[in-house]
Design a protein around this nucleic acid. Sequence first.
DNA 1: GCGACAG
DNA 2: ATCTTGTCGC
Length: 220
Amino acid sequence: MTTPLHSWNLEPAAARALQTELARKVVLRNEVGEVRRIGGVDVGFEDGGKVTRAALVVLSFPSLAVLERQLVRVPTTFPYVPGLLSFREMPAILRAYEQLGEKPDLLLCDGQGIAHPRRFGIACHLGVWLDVPTIGVAKKRLVGWHDEVADVKGATTALLDKGQRIGTVLRSRVGVKPLYVSPGHRVNHEEAVSWVMRCLTRYRLPEPTRQAHKLASLEK
DNA sequence: GCGACAG
DNA sequence: ATCTTGTCGC
């Protein structure tokens, strides 16, 4: 199946309205069943941003061994606008997902889940679109505030915004900037953090996302 | 009007 | 994200 590009070419105002609408479909209850395969998603750009590279890597769980890798390159059709990242990166990601053999039971995305102005970051959009459990693992904060996180691997503190919890700030390893973890779809805060922690080894990023980033940046 | 601002 | 070399530290 091919994704119609036009449905992603919306004006910023229309895209924001669509996010507010689709955010109602996000499920924040834990519906993650048995997990044998975990997928990692990341996107890179080349040729001055004219080409979008989407990388999707599937790892076995709990061994975290790489089972499959998919890399697709498509023309970029949407600019980077804070808060509208999914409209820029999802078309390419969906192409990579289509190429996958065995679909993963859970997807970790480089970017926010509900830790978003309209509670609909790229992890939510991908999760709702594919109807699969997803978790947002961002390297930086988009919205919200939080206390300092202890410099101890596994230390966490809640990410808050407008009186509600929107995510968790997690120190994935000593001496590095913390990660911003938030539910994407079909998972709750606690499980989101738990899955990320179970995928941590000796690096700042959890294996699924780390492997996807390596592939997207062509650093094979 | 002045900052903030995932990738 | 991407553009880019060396450099500090385990």
